[in-house]
């Protein structure tokens, strides 16, 4: 039985409540370790897997649109992300036990949502890398526009540009630059090809 309710957990991640997040971590760590040890993993794999799982769920739980589907509890959800990541790791490694179907299947609340969670977290990680490579001016205008929701008029004033059109043009240039960086990445292209149906669904939901 999960100790907390889903809203409490989402609230903790969104308000950066470190004490509560650590409680969730403490609750989930033994369960993830237990799953791993029962499914061909070793204690030393656990720390890496747990870090990866929390990295992924951090990106998802802090998305305002996120909600648990099919009445899943946060603990089943987190454990399912761990399971999926572990199976992906085994497939990549092509270990002696190729048939990963034999591993314990946790009652996945919504297989698709787990896949999507991992996919989105991976994509956002790659985008983060590409943002980090941008020059300061580009980062500045992208953050003004998408984080602070500033209008072109406000950006123009803030950056002391001559016209709103200049702000628009600079934003367009930086977006193009960022997109070029992202689409150069082979991992990104592979993920996009693999998850095309999800991508289509994701943008059509808007």
């Amino acid at each position: 039985m999960p100790r907390y309710n889903n809203q409490q957990v989402l609230h903790a991640f969104n308000t950066l409540d470190s004490v509560f997040i650590e409680k969730v971590y403490n609750e989930m760590t033994p369960q993830i370790e237990h799953y791993l040890l029962k499914n061909g993993g070793r204690k030393e794999n656990a720390a890496d897997l747990i870090q990866e799982v929390f990295e992924s769920i951090s990106k998802i739980f802090t998305n305002n649109d996120f909600e648990f589907k099919n009445n899943a509890s946060y603990s089943t959800f987190i454990l399912s992300v761990a399971q999926k990541k572990w199976l992906n790791f085994l497939r990549k490694k092509k270990t002696e036990q190729d048939n990963t179907d034999q591993y314990t299947q946790i009652g996945l609340p919504d297989k698709e949502q787990i896949e999507e969670t991992i996919f989105e977290a991976e994509i956002k990680k790659l985008i983060d890398f590409s943002i980090a490579k941008l020059n300061k001016a580009c980062k500045e205008i992208l953050f003004m526009r998408y984080q602070k929701n500033m209008s072109h008029k406000e950006i123009m004033t803030e950056l002391m540009l001559n016209t709103e059109a200049t702000s628009r043009e600079r934003l367009r240039y930086c977006q193009q630059n960022l997109r070029n960086n992202i689409t150069k990445n082979a991992d990104y292209l592979q993920l996009i090809a693999e998850y095309y149906p999800f991508i289509l669904k994701s943008i059509k939901q808007k």
Partner: peptide
């Protein structure tokens, strides 16, 4: 479709950027 999705992900990544950075420190 890929271009629209990429733009959506860029937007969300930037919106969440500071929170994620602080969460990474906590984690």
């Amino acid at each position: 479709v890929e271009q629209v999705f990429c733009q959506k992900m860029i937007k969300e990544t930037i919106e969440q950027h500071d929170k994620i950075a602080r969460l990474q420190t906590i984690m």
